[in-house]
Design a protein around this nucleic acid. Structure first.
Lengths: 143, 143
DNA sequence: AGATAAAAAGACCTTGACATCTATTTTATC
DNA sequence: GATAAAATAGATGTCAAGGTCTTTTTATCT
C-alpha cells in the first residue's frame, strides 16, 4: 500500500519531530528508527531535496525538520520519496476513453484519492499529540 | 497502491461479468483486457483457487464468474491474488509496543482499513451498473 | 478410440525496489 | 589552514513481482 521507502521516511520525520532541539546524524536516526543506515541516508537526501528536512553539514551537523510538525502533512513526506500517482488516463489506451476513465479505473482512482486525502489532513503533529500509550518509535520505558 | 496483478484480476473479472453467457478462454479475456496472456493464466488460476471464478477444462471450456456481479465485492477479487495486509504488530519489533501500534503505524493502518472498506462495499455489479459514458474495458463503438 | 482444445503446472527470464558498500565533497570548528 | 565530522555520489548486490515459454492433464467432439 504505502511503500517501504515511504514508511522509512515517515519514521525518520517523526523521529526528528520528537527531538527537535538539535541536528541529528543519519546514524542516530537510523538507530532510533531501525532503518538500514545507508539506505536511510538516501531517503534523507530526498527529503532534504524536497525541503521536508533541513541538512546542516560539518561538525555537529545533521538533519532537522524544515517545518513545524503541525505544518507538515504526512502526504508531503510521502510525496517527497515516493509520489502518489493518480490514474489519469485509461491504462488500456482505449482511444474512445481518452481522459474519461471507465468505472473500474475511476473506482481505483477513488481509492487513491481517499488515501491522499487522509494523508493530506493528518500531520506529523497529529501523530505526536494524539494521546496514546505508545510513544512512536520508542520503547515506552525509554522516555 | 493496488498491485498490477490485482488490477489485472479486476479487469478479467469485469470482462467476464460483461459476457456471462458462456465460458471464455484465457486468450479471449487477454485480448479484451489487454493483459499479457500467459501472465493472465496465472492470475485466473488464483481466482479459480479462491472460487472467484469457475473454470471448465477441455474443449469449449474456459472461465466464468462463480458469483453474480452484485454478490462479488472487489475486495474478494483483490484478496484472491494479492491479499491486503494490515499492520498488526509494531514493525520495529519494540517489545513494549507489542500489539499496541504507535500512532504512526496506527495511522498507516487506518489508510489500509479505509481502502479495504471501499473495496468491500463496491461490487463488480456496481462497476457495471453505474451510468457512465465509458463502458469498462471496451471501445465505446464496439457495443 | 483418437484428435483436438482448453486449463493446469512448472521452469525460466527480466526488471525495479530495496539495500549495502565505498569513495568523494563540503563545511564547521579548533 | 588542518582536520574531523558530516552530507553527497556512485557502483554494486539481492530479491520478489511481473512476465514468458513449454509441457502435462483433462474434457469434448467426431
Amino acid at each position: 500500500m504505502i511503500s517501504q521507502t515511504s514508511e522509512y521516511a515517515l519514521r525518520a520525520v517523526v523521529c526528528l519531530a520528537q527531538h527537535s532541539d538539535k541536528p541529528h546524524t543519519t546514524a542516530e536516526i537510523a538507530k532510533q528508527t531501525k532503518v538500514p543506515e545507508h539506505y536511510l541516508s538516501k531517503v534523507l537526501l530526498m527529503l532534504a531535496k524536497h525541503e521536508v528536512v533541513y541538512s546542516k553539514k560539518g561538525l555537529h551537523g545533521g538533519y532537522m525538520l524544515a517545518h513545524s510538525p503541525e505544518n507538515l502533512p504526512l502526504l508531503n513526506v510521502i510525496n517527497a520519496v515516493d509520489p502518489i500517482k493518480h490514474i489519469k488516463t485509461c491504462p488500456l489506451k482505449l482511444k474512445t476513453h481518452g481522459t474519461n476513465l471507465c468505472r473500474l479505473h475511476e473506482r481505483l482512482n477513488d481509492s487513491i484519492d481517499l488515501i491522499e486525502e487522509l494523508f493530506r489532513t493528518s500531520t506529523v503533529g497529529t501523530i505526536l499529540s494524539d494521546p496514546t500509550k505508545s510513544i512512536p518509535l520508542c520503547e515506552s520505558t525509554s522516555k
